[in-house]
């Protein structure tokens, strides 16, 4: 059911999803089996008079509570680990680790407006606020196997920056900057959507996520405006 995972660390989220869904299916099936058994065994036709005591075997159903407690603790541990990995560790620390590991990273600023996304790139020098900054409308291009640090903002109402294929989501809030970090390993085109009701065209607030090989990205940075996606540039994005 889940769309294919294209990120390096999405498996951490998938693991929580799979364990939790798997666990509740098992508990659910057992509960339903017990319920159906009771409905049949204790129907009026089978059991015309109620027993004065609960059958001892059925009293053991209370064990479900203990199973649930153990399952809850397990779920909390793996979920908290993934949450810690993505969101609690300070960005500076993650960047330091990345540099130590010899990996690359880029920074992108995402701005949500009714009803489109704008992606600001620092340009070749990797720093915001210089002359070679540029922006793309409804198109996000990121290099493969590179860590991407996203800073999310909104200019009007609440939006939510959601990449289903990377298992990542965070709200865009006016007056605040929020952060996401991911690393995409599969080249190709994917979708970015808005997951927080933002008005009439909420469903149409989507952007293309293009993951390209590292050298292609480097070439593109040299001359971003000549890139074939020019028609997607922000000035030409049509409202409605």
């Amino acid at each position: 059911m889940l769309p294919a995972d294209i990120s390096a660390y999405g498996y951490l989220v998938d693991r929580v999803i799979n364990i939790s869904i798997g666990g509740i299916i098992i508990v659910g099936v057992i509960s339903f089996a017990i319920l159906i058994y009771m409905l049949i065994a204790f129907s009026k036709s089978k059991n015309p008079h109620p027993l004065s005591e609960v059958p001892p075997l059925l009293k053991k159903v209370v064990l479900i509570d203990y199973v649930m407690i153990i399952f809850d603790i397990l779920l909390l541990v793996i979920s908290s680990y993934a949450w810690f990995f993505f969101f609690i560790r300070p960005t500076d620390k993650i960047k330091k680790e990345i540099v130590q590991k010899g990996e690359d990273y880029i920074e992108v600023r995402v701005i949500g407006r009714q009803y489109f996304w704008t992606f600001h790139y620092p340009g070749k020098d990797g720093r915001f606020g210089t002359a070679d900054d540029f922006k793309l409308g409804n198109l996000m291009i990121v290099p493969q196997d590179t860590n991407v640090f996203v800073e999310i903002e909104s200019k009007d109402v609440l939006h939510s920056f959601f990449i289903p294929s990377a298992r990542m989501k965070y709200d865009a809030i006016p007056g605040r900057k929020t952060h996401l970090w991911f690393k995409l390993v599969e080249a190709g085109e994917y979708e970015i959507v808005c997951a927080e009701l933002c008005g009439a065209m909420h469903y149409n607030m989507k952007a293309v996520l293009r993951v390209v090989p590292k050298n292609e990205f480097k070439n593109w940075l040299e001359q971003p405006y000549n890139f074939a996606e020019r028609k997607n540039l922000i000035q030409e994005v049509k409202m409605r």
Binding site: M38, K44, L51, V54, P55, L58, V62, I64, D65
Partner: peptide, 13 residues
Amino acid sequence: VVLGLTLAGGSIR
């Protein structure tokens, strides 16, 4: 669980 076990041993209409 308590609600479900209320059925146990009953004579359900």
